[in-house]
Design a protein around this nucleic acid. Structure first.
Length: 815
RNA sequence: GGUCCAGUGGUGGAAUUGGUAUACACGCAGCACUUAAAAUGCUGUGCCCAAAAGGCGUGUGGGUUCGAUUCCCACCUGGACCACCA
């Protein structure tokens, strides 16, 4: 047993007093920038799941320092956002005060775990000297036409009283409070992320060290699809209906056309629609539906025919019925689709319900014969049937030829569509960065001059949303009423604030140069430290933070602020730690485990080792206090083995086997840290300690001399820094183990002299030969045949095949 | 419905350019120490069989191979993300 509390406290103080983790600006050394996704400092404090990623990056940072790298490993706070604001409303406390208190709690909790952050670089997104630059970036985007004002309907959360981006929804519900989101036309600021959609997608190729799962999620989210835009003329009218389809090859099966309820063309056709009042009734019903009701997959598809108007199929000249139906979304493609019930399930469902014609235009070739006229809907590619001049072509060929025909006749063109929408970037709430724009009745929208940034948040009496869809800032007339920077006349400030995701889009750049008041980041420093070499955090950020940050970074690259157009070279996501009951840790289930309590009771080192040992890093695992005790026992064994070293006999013997094991362990731990396989690294350390303990028990001596024991402490140190530092000093060292260097292993020593060589007969394991490594095929086979066990299986049989895999196995086949 | 990932002992998991399946840890059982318990140490622990020998065994079924947890095909189950995206 060792007194972890005293020991950990002692070393944390010494490390802090000696500034051990201060980043040195030595540009001559190779750098390594390893970053955690910075936390939102909530009132609830940390639970044991939060530090999992921080422990991993801490181990990695310590390892890289030992390897001789100049390491940047900072921490900060993503502190704007709704929870602090809601807390402020409830308790009448300024959100800044609540935020500062939470940060203090978080920082204390983190410090107990012994992380090696350079706290001199701490940043806070709510600090005006920080958000000055968030505002500055916004202004650059605005000046470059990437931020625009829009009045389109957006997602509105009635409970949070704010507009939301598409990314902020979960199954049509507000991700934060679970309320049903309404579509509400709002004045808002939007960032043109769609301008970067292609680069965001294509440049994923530049990121081989990102996990595929995250890249796939981003690809999905961006959702690029290649297709064709087709013009359907409206009979006896100048109006035309544009549709987007990826399956132009099915167009000869098109039997009607469907418009989204919000499609503007409805207004154009108004006078021709005989049953317009029925149509209006339908639009009214749709308007009152929530997004959730409209997109519910189980719902019955509904729609109304537009009597008296017909669309013309550009290929066949057929007159097609036109419907309005809310299964067509106005915000994707053109807000209108050509319906091919024979080859699209949604259209099929709709056509069946309303008794519409179903016409096959794609068939399959089976055994060289065309099979067409499938009874239900056939959605795969095939060969065109009943398709005029295009009959017989494959779907793929047809798409090219049909599109070419449309282009030639000015009836359409090839077109790319994206699922990703422009980013709704304004919130009607208080606790966010003010958008630095001014509305002047004469000059229009004018930027706050850069030299007067930051535009700070004014103090308000009440943080309640105004209830009118505007932020509480509208009530601060002193602040709102200002003069136009251009003409000097009276003008009003923009009262929307930025969403929580703003500050986190570029924070990793600020750590490089956190106190610079003249620039976002000094160019020379940026060139040295950027990009982030390794970024670790939760997978829930795959389609928000990580897309947003890549977008901003590319923009910053385009305007020359950064020197490379991708911000994060390697990305690793951390798996959740679930409660002991297998459920997500939450107050609601009463299964939250507090890391500070665990660290005080069992030691920070035990917690660190356990969290790394639990299972594969990226996988979700349930917390288990017994498992934690196992990690604690391992450290006690280490302590027991080495801390009373000075009273032990100085070992003269170098037990050969254990020396070899030591070098194997260095090799294994090193490659496991590099690949983030901490669970097997810990296991290798345990195996080594078990062997030493067993040796000591039988001989009463340690199997290794002091220098070799020090090597072991070096590789243990990143995992259990406090205990390792203590033993390091007991072994006679005066400076920190973290000022030493990572040990080199000897390939020669790490190799086994004797190996097990399994012998299989007819695919079944029959014997294991212990032989010298590097044994020749001839010798190995001879030994195999001399083996009694093998003899019983091969005796009297004919040998038909023998396989020898060098230092791996022998496989004999007999008949 | 789409995209992706995963199914191995009582539990967390290990092993993949195809080569001894179950490392390491937890749990459990037995033993030692103890008046006793805890702690600690030792031993055992995939299944069938009293044991040995042997057989079976990595979700299910098939295939390729001297050899498959690993590769291929089909299916089942679970998870993550997205979802009427035309």
């Amino acid at each position: 047993m060792y007194d972890h509390q005293a020991l950990e406290k002692k070393w944390q103080k010494i490390w802090q007093d000696s500034n051990l983790y201060k980043t040195v600006e030595d540009f001559s050394r190779p750098k390594y920038y390893i970053l955690d996704m910075f936390p939102y400092p909530s009132g609830a404090g940390l639970h044991v799941g939060h530090p999992k990623g921080y422990i991993a990056t801490d181990i990695f940072a310590r390892y890289k320092r030992l390897k001789g790298f100049n390491v940047l490993h900072p921490m900060g706070w993503d502190a704007f956002g709704l929870p602090a604001e809601n807390y402020a409303i409830k308790n009448k406390i300024h959100p800044k005060k609540a935020t500062d208190e939470n940060i203090a709690t978080f920082k204390k909790q983190l410090s107990i775990l012994g992380f090696s952050y350079d706290w001199e670089r701490e940043i806070n997104t709510t600090d005006p000297s920080y958000y000055k630059w968030t505002q500055w970036i916004f202004l650059q985007m605005w000046k470059n036409g990437l931020a625009y004002e829009s009045f389109e309907p957006i997602n509105w959360c009635p409970s949070c009283q704010t507009g939301l981006a598409n990314e902020d929804l979960e199954n049509g519900l507000c991700e934060r409070c679970g309320s049903e989101v309404e579509q509400k036309p709002m004045r808002q600021w939007v960032l043109k992320i769609t301008d970067y959609a292609d680069r965001l997608l294509d440049d994923l190729e530049k990121l081989p060290d990102w996990e595929n799962s995250i890249k796939d999620m981003q690809k999905n989210w961006i959702g690029r699809s290649y297709g064709t835009e087709i013009i359907f003329k409206v009979k006896n009218s100048k109006s035309e209906i544009k549709v987007f389809t990826t399956r132009v090859d099915t167009i000869f099966g098109c039997t009607y056309v469907v418009l989204a309820p919000e499609n503007k063309i409805l207004n154009e056709l108004k006078d021709k629609i005989i049953n317009f009042s029925a149509v209006q009734d339908y639009l009214e019903i749709t308007r009152h539906k929530t997004e959730l009701q409209r997109t519910d997959l189980n719902k019955n598809k509904t729609g109304v025919i537009l009597e008296g108007v017909y669309a013309i199929n550009p290929f066949t000249g057929d007159e097609l019925k036109i419907f309005v139906a809310d299964y067509v979304l106005n915000y994707y493609g053109t807000g209108a689709v050509m319906a091919v019930p024979a080859h699209d399930e949604r259209d099929f469902e709709f056509a069946e319900k309303y008794g519409l014609k179903i016409k096959t235009s794609i068939g399959q070739k089976i055994n060289g014969r065309m099979i067409s006229g499938a009874k239900s809907c056939f959605t795969a590619d095939g060969y065109l049937v009943d398709s005029g001049d295009f009959t017989g072509l494959s779907s793929e060929e047809a798409r090219l030829k049909l599109t070419a025909w449309l282009e030639k006749n000015n009836l359409g063109s090839s077109k790319v569509n994206y699922k990703i929408k422009d980013w709704v970037f304004s919130r009607q709430r208080y606790w966010g960065e003010p958008i630095p724009l001014i509305h002047c009745p004469k000059c229009g929208i004018v930027a706050v001059p850069e030299e007067s940034l930051p535009l700070t948040l004014p103090k308000v009496e009440s943080y309640e949303p105004s209830g009118t869809g505007e932020s509480p800032l509208v009530g601060i007339s002193d602040w709102v009423n200002t003069s136009c920077p251009k003409c000097g006349g009276p003008a009003k400030r923009e009262t929307n604030t930025m969403p929580q995701w703003g500050g986190s889009c570029w924070y990793y750049l600020r750590y490089i140069d956190p106190k610079n008041d003249l620039a976002l980041v000094n160019k020379e420093k940026e060139k040295y430290w950027s990009p982030v070499d390794f970024y670790v955090g939760g997978a829930e950020h795959a389609t928000r933070h990580l897309i947003y940050a890549r977008f901003w970074h590319k923009f910053l690259f385009d305007i020359g602020v950064v020197n490379y157009d991708e911000p994060f070279t390697r990305l690793q996501h951390v798996g959740l730690i679930m409660g002991e009951d297998g459920r997500k840790m939450s107050k609601r289930w009463g299964n939250v485990v507090n890391p500070s309590e665990i660290a005080l009771k069992y030691g920070a080192d035990s917690l660190r080792v356990y969290e790394m040992f639990m299972g594969p890093f990226s996988q979700a695992v349930a917390w288990n206090t017994n498992g934690l005790i196992g990690a604690r026992k391992f450290l006690e064994k280490v302590e027991n083995l080495l801390s009373n070293f000075s009273t032990d006999l100085e070992p003269e013997i170098e037990a050969e086997k254990i020396l070899s094991l030591l070098h194997k362990t260095i090799k294994k731990v090193q490659s496991d840290i590099e690949s983030f396989s901490f669970n097997t690294a810990v296991s290798a350390l345990m195996i080594f300690v078990n062997e030493c303990t067993a040796y000591k028990q039988t001989t009463g001596k340690l199997p290794l001399n002091k220098d070799n024991l020090k090597i072991f402490i070096k590789i243990l140190a990143p995992f259990a820094p406090h205990l390792s530092e203590e033993i390091w000093q007991i072994l006679g060292e005066k400076t920190s183990v973290f000022k030493s260097s990572w040990p080199e292993f000897s390939e020669d020593l790490a190799k086994d002299k004797l190996i097990n060589l399994p012998v299989q007969v007819n695919g079944k394991l029959r014997a294991i030969l212990v032989v010298e490594a590097g044994i020749s095929e001839e010798d190995a086979i001879r030994l195999a045949f001399e083996n009694e066990k093998v003899k019983t299986y091969v005796a009297g049989k004919e040998l038909s095949k023998k396989i020898f895999v060098y230092d791996k196995l022998i496989s004999l086949v007999v008949k």
